[in-house]
């Protein structure tokens, strides 16, 4: 069975907004990230398991604010105390995770089909987010993530790169179309390319 992506019916490719007389390279790029494995891992309060001994795809779970542990395929986002969001290209990781994280100490939930991911790429990506999100994005550095709201919609924001800015915005699948409208509206001022 093939899965239908969250933005299948709404994401349009092409140039939009104030793009005229601008170099196409300098425009914001908006794309949808699909077919990623998204796993929520929560350690129970009663658990006494040491996190240092657990590795997924060579990465540790770190209990640090804004922290993202990453390699070329996998990113582990800090989601709150003893709570992480794993995002990976490797679909087979799910079995490894279920094997390593026993159900007496951890809750592992596959969220792959319940989230939509919009990727913003370009110098003005942070300026777009500032329009709808109350966080101070000047403080956000490469490999940082946070949970916040964008125009009232709960989002998880992950800064993959800062030269130029490459940002993934996660939201509930049911909010995906509203968030896409909000993001693209905010991008019109700068001009953007849907890819």
């Amino acid at each position: 069975m093939t899965s239908i992506s969250a933005l299948e019916n709404i994401h349009i490719k092409g140039l939009f907004g104030d793009y005229e007389d601008k170099n196409e390279k300098d425009l914001l790029k908006i794309s949808e990230n699909k077919d990623l494995l998204i796993i929520q891992i929560v350690q129970y309060k009663s658990s006494s398991t040491f996190l240092e001994s657990l590795k997924i795809d060579g990465l540790n779970l770190k209990n640090e604010t804004l922290n993202v542990c990453s390699n070329s395929d996998t990113r582990i986002l800090w989601n709150g105390p003893n709570s992480w969001l794993l995002v990976s290209n490797k679909k087979k990781l799910l079995r490894e995770i279920i094997g390593k994280f026993d159900e007496n100490n951890f809750a592992v939930t596959d969220l792959s089909h319940s989230r939509a991911i919009i990727e913003l790429n370009g110098e003005n990506a942070k300026e777009v987010l500032k329009k709808g999100c109350p966080y101070n994005f000047n403080e956000l550095k490469k490999d940082n993530c946070l949970n916040s709201t964008f125009n009232g919609m709960p989002v998880t924001i992950d800064l993959l790169d800062n030269n130029p800015n490459k940002i993934r915005i996660f939201t509930l699948r049911s909010f995906s179309e509203s968030l896409y409208h909000s993001i693209t509206d905010s991008c019109l001022e700068f001009g953007y390319k849907g890819i």
């Binding site: 604010t65 804004l66 109350p134 949970n147 916040s148």
Partner: peptide, 11 residues
């Protein structure tokens, strides 16, 4: 105490 300074909107 977990995340740092944030807007009231998030609370």
């Amino acid at each position: 105490p977990h995340c740092g300074m944030r807007s009231q909107n998030e609370f």
